[in-house]
């Protein structure tokens, strides 16, 4: 347990860039799965969008 805490602290190098890339990638995926209006995408994602309450149409 002590080792774990130490190793997290030592690896404390997460760059702002890395975090920003992850957030952008996440937003990109969410736009595709929840918001994109293209019919093919909309129909395929239909049930999931309703279940997750995306405001998509």
């Amino acid at each position: 347990m002590t080792t774990k805490t130490a190793s997290i602290a030592r690896d404390d190098t997460s760059s702002a860039l890395g975090l920003a890339i992850a957030v952008l990638a996440g937003v990109f995926l969410l736009v595709a799965s929840g918001m994109a209006q293209a019919t093919v995408l909309h129909d395929a994602a239909h049930d999931q969008r309703h279940a997750m309450a995306f405001p998509c149409h």
Partner: peptide
């Protein structure tokens, strides 16, 4: 139903990327 599974995975991966970035930011 396969599409529903696939898009749930995409949605949760999208949320997961943002959530984990925030978690790591707080961890730092």
């Amino acid at each position: 139903h396969g599409m529903t599974i696939a898009f749930n995975m995409i949605t949760y991966t999208g949320y997961g990327l943002i959530l984990l970035a925030l978690m790591i930011f707080a961890n730092d």
